[in-house]
Design a protein around this nucleic acid. Structure first.
Length: 270
DNA sequence: CGCGACTCCTGCCGGC
DNA sequence: TGCCGGCAGGAGTCGC
């Protein structure tokens, strides 16, 4: 479910319900996420006020009290607001109850996500070495070009490397490479500056569009307020292996790069 | 250091 | 219908 647009959509959905609100109670039903939810989290956030809801890469940063609750949604995670005492279903691991009568509920079937505490989140080991945000001026074709010199890996896993640029997951990497006409198997160090310029533009365009549309609706994603989403119909390559290319009609090829399925058009992408 | 493989976990889908 | 293998939107970690 969550790539950067989904995380940003979640942030926008939950922020107005959290900022200025006091946490009345933290209910942890299962601490076993990627790392255990810290035992002292309740002490840190109960009776404290949320002051801001930020995002860095795919991490949500919930500022409260003397620090920040860092949350990651992993592959299957989800944060949403529910009325306090809403019946709890399987995999709904955490409720953060608010003085508004609502609770921020964390759900994550695969438990690849995280919920951590830090007094200096941007310096946290998980965040300290992240590359630039894709929708800022710090990210552009020159950045891709400079980072890629001498790199032998394929361009697709290269743009999915969080040290190069954050927030480009499998769906958007696949779509951006299709839009830029670049073969995902091409060696990162052998893509020209001009083509990286184009690729950076496509990454920005597609991510911005997906955020505008409220995230990807692959299965049942709904943001904090459940708006429609980036429809599966609009995808050109992701999930379309063996189907017809919408540009040239060729059957789309599928391979694996960095253990991730990768779909591309061998005619349109070179 | 760069790179690829492996790993965590549950759910779901297709094939037999 | 039921079982089994493979795959899924992420990304840290390990070994070479």
């Amino acid at each position: 479910m969550p790539e950067l647009p989904e995380v940003e959509t979640t942030r926008r959905g939950i922020a107005p319900h959290l900022e200025g609100r006091t946490v009345t109670s933290l209910l942890v039903r299962d601490r076993r996420l990627r790392w255990p939810i810290p035992e002292d989290l309740a002490i840190q956030i109960e009776d404290q006020i949320f002051t801001a809801v930020r995002r860095r890469a795919k991490y949500l940063l919930l500022d409260i009290g003397g620090g920040t609750l860092i949350s990651h949604l992993g592959m299957s995670g989800n944060l949403r607001l529910v009325p306090v005492n809403t019946p709890v279903l399987k995999h709904e691991h955490v409720d953060i109850e608010l003085d508004s009568g609502m609770a921020l509920r964390y759900t994550d079937p695969r438990r690849f996500g995280a919920m951590l505490w830090s007094t200096d989140p941007l310096a946290h080991p998980l965040l300290a070495n992240l590359g630039p945000e894709p929708l800022t001026d710090a990210f552009d074709g020159n950045r891709l070009y400079q980072c890629s010199r001498g790199r032998s890996m394929a361009v697709k896993p290269f743009i999915m490397d969080n040290a190069v640029v954050v927030g480009v997951g499998n769906i958007y990497a696949t779509e951006a490479l299709f839009a830029a006409g670049i073969d995902p198997r091409r060696e990162a160090g052998r893509v020209s500056r001009a083509r990286y310029q184009r690729l950076a533009e496509e990454i920005k365009r597609i991510l911005a569009y997906a955020i505008e549309r409220g995230g990807t609706t692959l299965r049942d994603f709904t943001g904090g307020d459940g708006k429609p989403g980036y429809f599966q119909q609009e995808l050109f390559a992701y999930g379309r292996g063996g189907q017809m290319c919408k540009i040239c009609g060729t059957s789309l090829s599928e391979t694996r790069l960095g253990q991730r399925s990768s779909v591309f058009c061998r005619i349109c992408q070179r």
